[in-house]
Amino acid sequence: MNWQGLKAIYFHEMDRMRRTLFQSLVSPFISTSLYFVVFGSAIGSRITEIEGISYGSFIVPGMIMLTILTQSISNASFGIFFPKFTNTVYEILAAPLSSFEIILGFVGAAATKSLIIGTVIICTAGFFVDLQIEHPFIMMFFLVLTSVTFALFGFIIGMWADNFEKLQLIPILIITPLVFLGGSFYSINMLPEFWQKVSLLNPVLYLVSGFRWSFYEIADVSIYTSLITILFFLFSCVLIISYTFAKGYKIKN
């Protein structure tokens, strides 16, 4: 195992966050505050409680998930896309690093950034609502698992994309709608029966539901179903990345 190489990639990527600290930390802080103002105050004044939880508190897990998903994807996709774009990827490919170490370095850094941002959001949320976390370890487990899984997914997008438009395509056209329609800001029990069934096809619903359960023990689907879904997605991403890296897809050919 090339630990030094892995460390070099990890800290090199983390350094990018340090160089753009304002954008990295202040921007999620402002977005979260805006969500509270818009959703918490405006909609919260009409929907006071959902399943015994105040609306403001109810949306916190969904908001964290929304940010974790988008940040993990964008950090990891940009992390590998940028060296490709600037052609500095040559030194990573020429170094005595295995595919696993390269992926671990980039994905680890992207997931860490997301976790830091997730923590910032939880702290920000604490200013607006009373937060209760019934199962902090399960909450952390979901947070880490989601960050890693979507950082892997972002890494795949970064490898696939050969221009900035493609880099933004999947996060904007697929991920954001899935998160908004995945019960981040509402319970699917509030939807008509048909749309409840349609919502069950949305994988993000399972993440948000499981994550919310760790906070308030309320969920749209079983916690086990949520866990299996995220683990399935994680292994799918690992398989796709291993295959594409081994084949050198869009990098080594």
């Binding site: 190489g5 070099a8 990639i9 500095t88 040559y90 030194e91 020429a94």
Partner: peptide, 28 residues
């Protein structure tokens, strides 16, 4: 390897970038 094009990160310092390359090759 020294590539043909002048491909370098834009915002890093010379010191950090050269040390980063050493790290990639597993050297302390």
């Amino acid at each position: 390897i020294v590539p043909q094009e002048l491909n370098l990160e834009a915002f890093e310092t010379v010191w950090d970038n050269v040390n980063y390359s050493r790290g990639l090759y597993g050297k302390s």
